[in-house]
Design a binder for these strands. Sequence first.
DNA 1: GCCATAGTTTACGTTAACGTAAAGGTAATG
DNA 2: CATTACCTTTACGTTAACGTAAACTATGGC
Lengths: 130, 130
Amino acid sequence: MTVKTYTIGELAQEFDTTTRTIRFYEDQGLISPKREGQKRIYSAGDRITIKLILRGKRLGFSLAESKELIELYSHGSNNQDQYLKVLEKVNISRERLLQQQADIDMMLIELDEHEARVKADMKSKNKNKS
Amino acid sequence: MTVKTYTIGELAQEFDTTTRTIRFYEDQGLISPKREGQKRIYSAGDRITIKLILRGKRLGFSLAESKELIELYSHGSNNQDQYLKVLEKVNISRERLLQQQADIDMMLIELDEHEARVKADMKSKNKNKS
DNA sequence: GCCATAGTTTACGTTAACGTAAAGGTAATG
DNA sequence: CATTACCTTTACGTTAACGTAAACTATGGC
């Protein structure tokens, strides 16, 4: 069975982005699609990489940061030294994400509070209309 | 009792940012500190606003987005029309945050998985050293 | 009186992450 | 066979969010 591949247009549509953006990620060394003549052919792996990049983007990760993470996942650590560095990077990423979780939790609470305030306000105004 | 105030340097230190950044936020209309002669004097409210901006920044919010949220909180809705818009904005923000929560959850799982993989790898290598 | 420290304004510089336009190749379709 | 739909490369443009430098003011300590 031949492996599933994608054109740049398909991926741009699927992820609601532009072909320019996808080519830019290639420029920055994040993906390296095969070629079929001139045309870029994206593998399932390329597709996943793009997905990771865009997810990182939603969390405010720069391309450089996403690249680091992706490379972290693809390169197994060879020696003890590399191994420790990998674990350290994992921990740094984790702490950042935990901080973001805390930030989100607070923002969600504040949104709820504000919504309740505004709704209560509206009710008391409607009373005075009688 | 006189109300607690802050200098720009104090706030920059507290939030681990620069005075340039704080002045920039003023430029963009996010804060409007009082003046004492030439010097900017920040109130407790100004300080909170800066805190909100920086929290938003950690989550990838642009200054314009943080500004919208902050204004959302400070302007109570006057009429029915405004009221509905406020609720809509609250919902949009909430959904974004929920998406980010989901993204973070997945990334944390992947980090754990990778860490486990790398650790297992290291163990099997150490076995072969005997 | 001088120096260090912290504040001020003005203004040009920088980086990331694409947008946009121009000019062209290729393949299916009416 | 001409049009339409995608693809390509090249290259200049744009925006956000500050950085950095220069030149000046105010203040407390020695």
